[in-house]
Design a protein around this nucleic acid. Structure first.
Lengths: 143, 143
DNA sequence: ACCGATTTACTTGACATCATGAAATATTCA
DNA sequence: TGAATATTTCATGATGTCAAGTAAATCGGT
């Protein structure tokens, strides 16, 4: 509790707020260059790695499945994603990125300079320190 | 360019993504406890410090002024914010937090444990290192 | 092994919020 | 007077929730 209001902690909290804002600016800007919203880019990024059931997309996005229906609908209309039946369970629909979708996702990743370009200013040792501090902050103890 | 794809950089980028996600979860959870959306909590937080013209709220939020109208409308309906004329310019409306609004904003800040509680696990020296690394990453060179 | 009840996956519809852009109004400023 | 600024309104679309509906899988008792 001693850390609640000291200057150093507040500075770090504010810097993290700035990181969050910067991250979103970059992400939305990159998405907009492909006429995608942030949510659409996020889902396309997930599906470019592996097809996923609608349910699991909702879990990843921490939202209701009914919401995912609309997002995938819009991506499907644009030919970036397609729905396939799951041979193992006919209730399930697997959303999968099309070839065009995968290409768009790749371009999106390449355009996402955030934290990659800025990190270039840090040495390997510094990046290691940053990684370990972030891990501990997030409670992901190094195994 | 050597930093584009190395493992260490990608790890840090992913950790930052996790930080961003965690930040939003905490923020939205804290806001929801007061039946506020993220955007409403954000505006209330701004106004709890100082009254602001609608225009400046839009600049801070990086959105259109017409959007701010609705957000402030909802806060005003709930008695958390009020609109006042600006004596210096009759075109301008100043949005100001009411006493209730300031109290809600304070409770919101206190409930926002993100990065404050986790940072407790870091020593002063470590927090200083983290602060300086984040500053350099954000291009805010220490003056 | 069968069959009805429950659960699970997804979609649809109604609704609120957030976001943009264009047009309207009021006021300031050159 | 005419251009620029601050705000609002309106139309529209994306995102989010929740409740209800359909289809398919699974469970439990006989």
């Amino acid at each position: 509790m001693a850390t609640r209001t000291d200057t150093l902690t507040l500075e770090v909290v504010e810097l993290i707020g700035t990181v969050v804002a910067r991250y979103h600016e970059e992400y939305d800007r990159a998405a907009a260059e492909h006429s995608l919203t942030g949510a659409q880019a996020r889902v396309l990024g997930l599906l470019s790695l592996d097809p996923l059931p609608m349910r699991k997309i909702a879990v990843r996005l921490k939202c209701e499945p009914s919401n995912v229906t609309g997002i995938v609908d819009r991506l499907e209309t644009r030919g970036l994603v397609e729905r396939r039946p799951d041979p193992a369970d006919r209730r399930v629909k697997l959303a999968a990125a099309t070839e065009t979708g995968r290409r768009t996702a790749r371009e999106l990743r390449d355009a996402l300079d955030f934290a990659r370009e800025p990190l270039a200013g840090l040495s390997d040792a510094e990046r290691t320190v940053l990684r370990d501090l972030l891990r501990r902050m997030l409670g992901e103890e190094t195994p």
